[in-house]
């Protein structure tokens, strides 16, 4: 029996070792070495964190603020907004006639490839074809009826808002599925007790959706840290690094600068950033 177990276990171990464990350790190793292979401790990390494209508070609060701050801003704006919208739409549309069609339309943003999504964001925020500048022009707000992605003060926010549209569909679908799982009896009992819709939302639905919220929060957070395609296709991190993100910076170091050590350092840094909240959330999830 022992040999049989090993026999079935071995292919997975070999594949994971070759394609995951070895590259992972190689990346970590690269992040501690110089291009000529010398061990240099945490010098790469110090070097990366001292670069203006990673951390730059000279212009605070106007971007460019560095990829690290941009990722943080992305998280602070995108995470609550996309989860809130996903939840609200899921709750509002669950018993509405034609709600499924509206949900499908919202989910379109999630279905399209992110590269296409990036292009759509770019065109939506460009003056001329863009719907957003046109909207603000109608409202008479001149400062926002411009090409958002061409100006450092608006480029990052254009991408964040665009990505909210792309990602809300994901949260909407997860919440919709979770809402179906809430027993009707509980809601009916609360109605008998005289709870109004708002009370039902806050005291019945929201607590019961807590495990799902943890999942969506984690998935959304990881999406935010990994953001690459949208930025690459819309602004390439510009103007003047005003919309640079860590994932894009890693790509530029690796495949434009051919500086694999710096790229590996950003990759490890990014992985650590992802792991910390993921670990906390999993722990919380287990407790729950």
């Amino acid at each position: 029996m022992g040999i049989t177990k090993v026999f079935f276990f071995l292919p997975a171990v070999i594949l994971l070792s070759i394609f995951l464990i070895y590259p992972l350790f190689q990346t970590i190793y690269l992040s501690f070495t110089s291009p000529n292979g010398q061990f240099i401790g945490i010098n790469n990390y110090i070097n990366i964190l001292s670069r203006k494209e990673v951390l730059n508070l000279e212009n605070f609060p106007i971007p460019p603020l560095g990829a690290l701050i941009h990722n943080l801003l992305w998280t602070c704006i995108h995470l609550p907004l996309s989860i809130f919208l996903g939840l609200i739409f899921a709750v509002l549309l669950r018993n509405v006639k034609g709600g499924t069609i509206i949900k499908s339309i919202i989910f379109t943003g999630m279905v399209i490839p992110l590269i296409v999504g990036g292009l759509l964001i770019r065109f939506s925020f460009e003056s001329g074809p863009g719907i957003v500048p046109a909207f603000f022009q109608i409202l008479g707000i001149k400062s926002l009826s411009k090409n958002w992605i061409a100006y450092p003060d608006t480029a990052l926010f254009a991408l964040i808002l665009g990505s909210v549209w792309l990602w809300t569909g994901f949260n909407l679908v997860i919440y919709s599925a979770a809402l179906v799982g809430i027993p009707k009896e509980i809601e009916e009992a609360s109605m008998v007790d005289g709870a109004n819709p708002i009370q039902r939302f806050f005291y019945i639905i929201l607590p019961l959706l807590k495990p799902v919220t943890l999942t969506t929060t984690m998935a959304t957070f990881i999406f935010e840290l990994k953001t690459f395609d949208i930025v690459y296709i819309s602004t390439r991190g510009g103007p003047g690094d005003a919309s640079m993100t860590l994932a894009l910076l890693m790509y530029f170091y690796a495949f434009r600068g051919l500086d694999y050590n710096s790229a590996a350092t950003v990759a490890v840094f990014l992985t650590l950033l992802t792991l910390i909240p993921a670990f906390l959330m999993i722990r919380q999830y287990i407790k729950t």
Partner: peptide, 22 residues
């Protein structure tokens, strides 16, 4: 010169257009 320089050039062109004082 290529590499990161090219990306910086692209990015800074637009920045300069939006703010020539830079």
């Amino acid at each position: 010169i290529g590499g990161i320089f090219t990306e910086k050039l692209f990015s800074n062109h637009i920045l300069l257009w939006s703010n020539p004082t830079k």
